[in-house]
Amino acid sequence: MERPNINVELPGMRLKNPVIAASGTFGFGTEYDGIYPAHLFGAIILKGTTLKPRDGNPPPRIYETPSGLINSVGLQNPGIESVYDEYLPKLQNLRESGTKVILNIAGDTVDEYEAIASICEERGMIDGIEVNLSCPNVKKGGVNFGSNPDIASKVVASVRRKTTLPVIVKLAPVVTDIGKIALSCQEAGADAISAINTLPAVVIDIDKQKLFLGGGSGGLSGSAIKPFALMQVMNIVKRVSIPVIGCGGIMNSRDAIEFIMVGARAVQIGTGLFVSLKTVENVINGLVEYLSSVRKDNISQIEGIIFNNGARSF
């Protein structure tokens, strides 16, 4: 039998494989040079970038929990202009080699998202934008942009107006009806949805009798969140017609296959990159082996297969 085909089609970009480095875990693409080759990935998503530089949260920022990781890095980044001046030029070879480069953007206001999108449109050098909606809306009392379909669609529409680049919208996971929010993003012009971001979490330092993380609360990622992430991806897939990128706790090929079976077109790996240096290699090889073993010649043949087999969303 022919080698199964695992390249996947996202709007405006064809990925050589469905494995994407999740934002915030692969820096600005060059930090892992010599350790974790970026060209292994179908795409890499850069650290969340804002209009102006941000310091991020006070330390400590990292805490390990059973099968999980809580981070309160915050959005430490040098600002969009520095990302263009200092980091993106170094990633152009990578793009030529066939790995897509996606910029993850965040803001305090709708205007800020819009301003970043304009800069991206003008300066290029990337293959797409991922809009992180898990950010507090400063003008609306800090309510998350991703928590409400109307606000979410405002952000997406304003980014869409400014750019012709593919727009992926990354949803906040803890909301009453994630499918509804995904749908309103699609209607506002999103090309794809990615989910999920980290779950809100806190850690208590019982010696000091206070919160452990410098930022107060943080975000939980890793294996611990995978079952929840799968369910949210299912709920999104049932509602939208644009592709969905699954994320949350993927450590190996089995985990990745589960996401594809609930309807994800591609997957992101974050915490899994920290756990082993072979995660990506193993996911890709395992995916190909699985497809061969079930006699499928294309990864698209298992995308959303659980729905063919009777599943419904919840």
Binding site: T25, F26, G27, E31, Y32, I62, L69, N71, T271
Partner: peptide
């Protein structure tokens, strides 16, 4: 976490 400057943790 990463040990190489990628996670800013």
């Amino acid at each position: 976490a990463c040990g190489v400057g990628a996670c800013l943790g």
